[in-house]
Every structure is written in structure tokens, then in C-alpha cells.
Amino acid sequence: MKQLQLLRLHIRKLLLGIAVLVALCAFNIAVGELKPRADWNAVDLLGEGGTTLIIAIWALLILASRPAGRVTTLLYAGLLTMFAGCFQDFTDELVRMPATVAVWHDWLESMLMLAGMVTLTVGIFLLHREQLVIINQLSRRERIFREHDRVDRITQLGDAGYLRKQLQIELAQCNATGRGFAVLLVDIDRFSGFNREHGHGEGNRMLREIGELMLMNLRPADLLCRYAGDRFAVLMPGANEHIAGEIASQLTTIVEHFSFKTTVDGSTVRNTVSIGAAVSQGETSDDLLARATDALEQVKRSRPGRWQLAA
């Protein structure tokens, strides 16, 4: 459904595309004459027809995946021009142009392809610049690589699978360069009770807001993931016991000072988080997470709302 929503923004562009297609068909019918069946070359027809069709699919996918704007317009314009060039290349196989037209028609065909590719290249270059801005916006949510099916649908953070991959990368880095790292497991206290009292929709909204709150309080190189349920994980490259403890302590404080407002009557709900921290000792990611989990379980049992460093 989302795809159709985005396409709706681009109705004028779609109409333009259809108009181009209609114009090209009309031009071919008016000027050219159909070649006899015997002159058709099946391989050329398949190759050029297939290319044309695929370019049309690219153009549609671009429109379906992007909001309106300069980059989208350039990408679409480039693809549409290339489509026109390819389409004429394809109809060449079916239609013979009179000698007067043939010369400039061949020239036009090639120029359309080139112009389309140049436009597309400019579009892709701007897409690259746009991407850098987006990566910056996603800072602390994603690192080094992107996997869209590893994004949690409620908090828009990476999930436990994404975290494990990142831990492995970090571990390899650590072995190669000797730079250490730490992991925090952050658990919201009494979350299940909150859900029973206020409903699961409110619970999800609180997860999202506490997630946002923590993102703002991490270092630029840190990564926040949703581990599972009401538990978050922070991967902190280069952090030692001191830094991990400092950030953990800051996180418990900012959540304590955060007053969540319910949808029903806007009343305030206060929260605390408990944190288990572990600094890598070069063990496997599962063992590291197990140490952080142990520390977290101890805090939750003895003094919820605080943090503890794993032994």
C-alpha cells in the first residue's frame, strides 16, 4: 500500500511517460512502414525489447520508492529519455523508415541514449549526496552496512540479528587493531505492568520515545539496537570500563527525568531503566552478551533503575 501512496505523488510524471510512449507509437505508424515478417530478427527483438521493458520497470520502481524532489525528477527524466532511445531502437527491427528520415533518426536514437545516461548520472551523483545526508540522520541507528529486513518495525532500530553481525565486525576490528569496545543492555523496569495498565499501543509508543531519547544521548559512533521486547542494546566502539559506566549512568539519569505523557489524559508516567554493561575481553559475541545479561539480571534483582558492569 505504501508503494501506491508514493506513486500517487508522481501522477504528472507518469502521464508524461505515457504521452512519450503514445507519441513514439504515433510517429512510427505515421512515418514508417512495417517490415515483412521474414526480415524480423528474433534475437534482436528479444534483446532490445527486453532492455526497453526493463528500463520502464526501473523508472516505475524509482517513482514508487521516492518522494518528489529534484533527485527523483532527474533520475526519472534520465530513465525516460533512455526508454525513448531504446524504444526506437526496438521499433527499428519492426518498422522501416523512409531514406529521408532514417539518417537523422539514427542520430536521434543515439543522442537520446547518451542524453538519458548523462541525466541519469547527474541524478545518481545527487542521490549519492542525498545518501550521505541520510546516513548522517541514521547515525547511531545503523553502522557500516544496511539490511532493511533487520529493522524493528516499532522503534525503527536494528534488531538482535543486526546487533550480532555488528558485534562480529567489531570483534574482528578489535582483534586486528587492539581497539576495545563495550556493550550495554538496557531494560525498561516494570514495562509489562505498564502494558497491562495502559495498553500495548501505549507500550509501543513508549518504547519508541525512550529509544529516541537514548539516541540523542549516545556518542556519534555508538549504535543503538532493539534487542528484544523492552530491552535495548548499545554497541560502543572504543569504550573502556570508564566510558561504558559513564554512558550507562547518563542513560539511567535521562530516562529517570523523562516524563512520558499518556494519550488518554496526558498524565505523566515516570520510568527507570536498568543497565548491564560488559567490556569485550575478546570472547565470542554470544559470551559477551551473556555477561552483559548476567550483570543486567543482577541489577534488576537487587537495585532496579541502576547500572552494573559485568565482572
Binding site: 523492552d230 530491552r231 545479561t293
Partner: peptide, 9 residues
């Protein structure tokens, strides 16, 4: 991790 968080370790 779902077991750890929803049940325990």
C-alpha cells in the same frame, strides 16, 4: 534473545 527478555536467562 526473545526467551531471555520475555522469560529470563
Amino acid at each position: 534473545e526473545q526467551y531471555e527478555v520475555h522469560l529470563g536467562s
